[in-house]
Simulated scan of single mutants.
Amino acid sequence: MSTRKGNLALLQLLLNSGRVDADCRDSFGTTALMVASYSGHYDCARELIMQGTDINLQRETGSTALFFASQQGHNEVVKLLFEFGGSTEFQTKDGGTALSAACQYGHSKVVDTLLKNGANVHDQLHDGATPLFLASQEGHVTVIRQLLSSGAKVNHPREDGTAPLWMAAQMGHSEVVKVLLLRGADRDADRKDGSTALFKAAFKGHNAVIEELLKFSPSLGLLKNGSTALHAAVMGDNHKSVNLLLGANADPTLPNKDNELPADLTKSNRILRALRPHILNGSS
């Protein structure tokens, strides 16, 4: 309780009484240092270290004090832990590390500290997600730039084939998409279902993302059934997305493998009105 509330005087009293061990744990394996690190209580964390606590103990989940401090963005605590032997190599049960946690939550100062102290930019969760993937998913542009400058692989996919660009496009993070493309992301990379970043952005109606992708002249975003990004925009009932794609010469007369045209997939009058002149021009 004293570490959770940051009560240094009470913590010192308990530790100096000899009745409480600095490495005492709860039923989940949580130590007082983990609690102090999670809460950002620097003085309590330092006191526990001075009293001989093991910095690198792992909770039942595999998390360490460094993981918690990194996850919560407490950079001064992170620096303190490194000063006394904190390690970046420990993983949680799902493969998470201090770096992956900091990247997921966008703590750029912590990311910088971790990288300077040996964190591996190529860390992966058990599903293959890298720190870059997690930062792209959450839209943390500054962190993405840090990782790319430190050698992160811009096209490294998760095990299901999802690349950082695809995930950023799905989530609507247009600035992330721009940065990834400028750093060499494969604009036409697809998942195991065959969908590209453009297809997913069109289905979701993320028009700023579509505009960034179109600057790099991506493919039509074909799915395995032959559906294009225009099919996706129509299915998602995204009128502006339809117009953006038509303006980029998407072909509304191109059927999928079920012989469905984009116009066959909607009952929206305004989308049909947008498609009709292009269909007529294409058939003339």
Rank of each mutant, 00 (worst) to 15 (best):
V78I: 01
S219V: 00
S284Q: 13
Q146P: 07
T130V: 09
D237G: 09
D160M: 00
S149W: 02
L198N: 03
D264H: 15
I210K: 03
T113K: 02
S100K: 14
V154H: 00
A168T: 09
Q146I: 02
K109M: 12
S150G: 07
S174W: 06
R145H: 09
F28V: 10
L275W: 10
H156N: 00
L254K: 09
G29R: 04
K257Y: 14
D160K: 02
Q71M: 09
G118Y: 08
L33C: 08
S284G: 15
S100H: 03
H278P: 09
V154M: 08
G161A: 02
V121S: 01
N7R: 10
T196V: 01
V242F: 07
S195G: 13
G184L: 03
L272H: 11
G247K: 11
T53G: 08
A45D: 05
V111Y: 02
G139I: 04
Y42T: 10
G118C: 03
L245I: 05
N7W: 11
H41A: 05
S217C: 09
A197L: 02
V209H: 02
L10F: 05
L223S: 15
T253P: 13
P262G: 04
P157M: 01
L214T: 07
S268R: 07
L182G: 13
G172A: 13
M34Q: 12
L33W: 05
G86Q: 11
L254Q: 04
S283W: 15
T88A: 06
H74Y: 01
T142M: 15
R183Y: 12
L15I: 06
A208I: 04
L198P: 06
L148V: 10
A119R: 04
N269T: 15
L14E: 15
A274K: 10
H206W: 09
S241I: 04
T142D: 14
N249I: 01
P277D: 01
T97S: 02
M235P: 12
F199W: 09
R25G: 11
P262L: 00
K215I: 00
H231E: 06
S149H: 02
K192P: 12
R4M: 13
N281W: 02
M34Y: 13
A233P: 11
S39H: 14
A32N: 11
A201G: 07
A201V: 01
D127N: 10
K79H: 07
T266H: 14
V176I: 13
S136V: 13
G247Q: 04
G40M: 00
E138L: 05
S174H: 08
G29I: 01
L254Y: 12
K5R: 14
H206F: 03
L180C: 03
G85V: 00
S227F: 05
L165K: 07
G62L: 01
L246R: 10
